[in-house]
Computed example of a mutant assay.
Amino acid sequence: MSGTPALSSGADTAPFRSSRKTVLPEWIDYNGHLNMAYYNVLFDTAIDEFFLAAGLGPDYVASENASFFTVEAHICYVRELAEGAPVHVESRILDVDDKRLHSWQELYHAEEGFLSATSEQMFLHVDMESRRTAPWPAPIRERLDALQGAATKLGRPERAGRAIRIARKASEQSA
């Protein structure tokens, strides 16, 4: 692998805090709160900041002809955000193996401090020429393991691994 860039300040701690963003007027839906599509925008731009700080930005893609693709995402909406709300996202790695990365993100109101939403994502490391999964290069895997180790100290998030379903009571199932 060509030189692995050093971690940017803050990337080696958990959780990684994104830059502050503002909920824009065009992101508000007819219910008067942040439209669900823009939660994805906020989570996606924040994970890009995290990956860039971890050395997995555009330079990595260009030098290694490899990248990582999101293959699954699960968002939980906890509390509404209004137009103009200042926000930040905290990101961390829950798990990593030879070809996959499992991330966790929390979106917070940057002034009031409340949790607005969570996002759990699974990424695959991909060889860009073959467009197939490929192992992480050893230096990157070591870095991801270290980031995951730092995040482990925070404990597993309560909402991680949730499934979408309607839980039925025994009396409803037999009816």
Rank of each mutant, 00 (worst) to 15 (best):
P25H: 09
I166V: 14
L101E: 10
F51D: 08
R92D: 11
T70Q: 08
Q148H: 10
F123W: 14
C76S: 10
R143T: 15
H88K: 06
L56K: 05
V41D: 10
V126F: 04
G10V: 03
E120S: 02
V41S: 10
L124V: 15
L124C: 12
E26V: 08
A66C: 11
T13N: 09
H109K: 07
H88P: 01
L7A: 10
T22H: 05
F114I: 12
S174L: 13
I164P: 01
W104L: 02
R156N: 10
S103P: 07
F68N: 01
S174M: 13
V87Q: 07
A85R: 00
R132Y: 14
P86M: 03
M122K: 13
Y30Q: 15
I93T: 10
K99A: 14
A146E: 15
S8W: 04
W136S: 02
L101W: 04
R20T: 15
P58S: 14
H102V: 12
Y60A: 06
Y38K: 04
A54N: 08
D12G: 09
S91Q: 04
S2K: 12
I47Q: 12
Y39W: 03
M122E: 15
L52Y: 14
E142D: 15
A54Y: 02
F51C: 12
M128I: 07
E106C: 12
A82D: 12
A73H: 01
M128Y: 03
A85Y: 03
E158L: 05
Y30P: 01
S171M: 11
T70F: 00
P5K: 08
Y60R: 03
D29W: 00
V89F: 00
Y77Q: 02
A82F: 05
E172H: 08
L34I: 02
A160I: 06
R17E: 09
S19E: 14
N65C: 03
A117S: 11
D12K: 00
T4Q: 09
L81Q: 00
F114K: 08
E158V: 10
T133D: 13
G149C: 06
E80W: 00
F51Q: 09
Y38L: 07
S18D: 07
R159S: 13
G149V: 12
E158W: 00
Y108M: 08
P5E: 05
G55T: 11
A53V: 00
E172C: 09
D98P: 05
Y30K: 06
A138Y: 08
P157W: 04
R131P: 04
M128G: 02
A117P: 01
P25C: 07
A62M: 12
L144T: 01
D97L: 10
N65Q: 14
L81C: 07
F16R: 00
S9L: 14
W104K: 00
F69M: 11
S116R: 03
V78R: 10
Y108D: 08
F114H: 12
H88D: 11
N35M: 01
E26S: 13
A62P: 04
G161H: 10
A82G: 04
V61L: 08
Y39H: 07
D97V: 08
L94T: 00
Y108Q: 11
L24W: 03
T118Q: 09
E90A: 08
L81F: 06
S119P: 07
I140S: 05
L107A: 01
E142F: 05
F69T: 11
L7T: 04
S116F: 00
V96M: 05
L101C: 14
Y108H: 15
T70V: 12
T133P: 13
T22W: 12
